[in-house]
Design a protein around this nucleic acid. Structure first.
Lengths: 115, 115
DNA sequence: CGAATACTTAAGCATATGCCTAAGCATGCC
DNA sequence: GGCATGCTTAGGCATATGCTTAAGTATTCG
């Protein structure tokens, strides 16, 4: 429903894969080249590059090629999109419980257990 | 790397689909039956039930059947798993920038450029 | 009882995803 | 130049995902 649904799709899809989360965790600690990123991962380099593409399309990661080495880094603002959505849902059901609580408080001394 | 990698997989996979996010958004505003959940969605009821299964396996949603109607509700704590992971990554690259900043501050009045 | 309601189960299908191997480019170094 | 390094491209394949229709099974109600 929000117009950035596509952005959320790409974001959560990117984070849904453990390999890609490992890459994000690695990059959260500092930039890395593609082969540095690939080194600990139990798969071929092309596979890693494909994951990297997903991460870049999600906006979570950016990269720049200098000479023959591509250096990747976290894109700081991007995580916020996901965090905002989660926080908003949290806020909504919190608000709901507040209303429920208010309702119960309002009606509680009138009678006994609201069965 | 964290031992709850599987939980994160299921969580982010569940949230990666716009239909499932719509269902979560609906449930964040209060419980609903399966057909209530399905009503606004442009697909068959079995398809909705499949999405619901994914949401249940992720722990985001719980449901209980009474008579012939299954009532679904948000599982409050679950979102926290995703939020925690995001917050942790955020913390890590923030910490990194702090260290970088400290390093630059520490070396700035001394003399030359590092290296 | 019999029909409507509310799911459930099963099977199938089209497309997407995650991986691989094998070649292909550039770039940097001797 | 010639060769290693670092990534890229291309093709293919196995499995997973998102949906469908059709045919169940339980409840509830007149």
């Amino acid at each position: 429903m929000p117009k950035h649904a596509a952005a959320l799709n790409r974001m959560f899809t990117a984070l849904a894969d453990p390999t890609r989360r490992a890459m994000v965790e690695r990059l959260a600690r500092g930039p890395a080249s593609v082969s540095e990123l690939a080194r600990p991962l139990p798969m071929s380099l092309p596979a890693v590059v494909q994951h990297l593409q997903v991460l870049e399309e999600s906006g979570l990661v950016a990269s720049e090629k200098v000479g023959r080495v591509r250096t990747c880094r976290i894109e700081p603002g991007a995580l916020g999109v996901a965090q905002d959505w989660l926080a908003q849902q949290h806020a909504h059901w919190t608000a709901r419980f507040d209303r429920l609580d208010a309702y119960l408080t309002e009606t509680k001394d009138d009678d006994d257990t609201p069965q």
